[in-house]
Design a protein around this nucleic acid. Sequence first.
DNA 1: AAAAAATGGTGATTTGAATCATTCTTAAAA
DNA 2: TTTTAAGAATGATTCAAATCACCATTTTTT
Lengths: 231, 231
Amino acid sequence: MNTTENVAVQKTTKPSFNIEEVLTAPELARFYEESNRTEFGKRDTIFKQGSRVTEVALVISGLVKVTREMRKGKNLILRVAQPGCFVGISSGLASETYEYSVCSMETTTIRTISVDTLRWLMESNHRFANEINQRICSENLFNISRLSSLLSKQLPGRVADIILYFSQDIFSSNEFSIPLTRQELAELAGTTKESLIRTLSEFKNDKIIDMNRNVFSINSFNILKTLSRLG
Amino acid sequence: MNTTENVAVQKTTKPSFNIEEVLTAPELARFYEESNRTEFGKRDTIFKQGSRVTEVALVISGLVKVTREMRKGKNLILRVAQPGCFVGISSGLASETYEYSVCSMETTTIRTISVDTLRWLMESNHRFANEINQRICSENLFNISRLSSLLSKQLPGRVADIILYFSQDIFSSNEFSIPLTRQELAELAGTTKESLIRTLSEFKNDKIIDMNRNVFSINSFNILKTLSRLG
DNA sequence: AAAAAATGGTGATTTGAATCATTCTTAAAA
DNA sequence: TTTTAAGAATGATTCAAATCACCATTTTTT
């Protein structure tokens, strides 16, 4: 057995620092001067996969999803980003175009800065640069973890993973309302709408969770964790 | 249709810069002073998933594979790293333990440096830091690309991907000998030994490739690319 | 050189999940 | 309110790939 378990979803969506604390006054001034605050509705496109990268964004309030558009109509939700998270950095620093789309899941405010400004801030402030580096690396490890989970676990394990993900990483609660459709939940679990629904229904029948419409509550964390572990 | 196609394997394994060119004389001196040159045999473990991260490595010569150990006996090869590539950076900068194993595929020389030395170099030299950042981001985009390919393509497309990967990214030739067993090729394509063998045999019967033992040669790049594209 | 182990290859069978088809339900639009 | 559309749910069927069971071949060890 491995020391590193395949917990598909780790605490990588949670921000580990606050801009205001890390940047100096002049850097912060420049950040606010050169960034643009934008508001988005319940389900708007913030960055579109395939379009030219100009900016990265910091989520101020709300919730966004980062999705990879695969073949026609098939999507994979990579992660959900919360206030304090940056989105678009990997594409910004290593690609000409966005390699994924970013969409709001609810009313959301973001601040966008140009890639140049990001680079300037990173050169100007080592601590900031370190924090950004660490986030990129964490995101990378998170993707590796998902790669192995999505590839090696079967449905019950993957569905358990996404329930634990929302409970632990996003809402820090065992009762929560998920602002995603069944189709989107399937895109997070790497499956189809029908299969996801079936698995959720089984969980409900087995009293592992309660669920009405989009409100979920977890009855047995242990069973979910076991399902996640055993795949 | 998307602008960004799911080319599973992109040129992320190729190094984009040379240490000697980027570091200053004193930095280089420190790099050589604080790094250790180590030689490995045909299939040795360099870093072991789950063990405490102390160092990252620069591949000097040879070829290594980066693998994620999933459940009992199930592995996924994440990438093949060539001379000039660093391995272990994501784990080094964002984890206490290695999140993947690194193993030599042939006689290999590496230089290891401590994470502290890596951090020092990154703080000391902006260009070096930028290059490292860019590599981490590329690796991340590469993993995202694989995630979507492995999840959305079926076997012929995934097998076509790995043949194209070795041909284009690793050996830059349409005839090459792959230093991996069938089992390992399966671990790269995210499938089982038997299924991989069957698919390769079909490719051979259809005259898309020639193959005897570990020597592969590509007869039709176009068919492979089409298979990769259509999944 | 003989024995043992690891790797390569094949056929038959099983199976998890995708797909297809349809109904029910909630939300939005006319 | 009625109509229309979008989302949720369930059953029946199909299918790609995993698993199981072997045998052949190559490599390594004794």
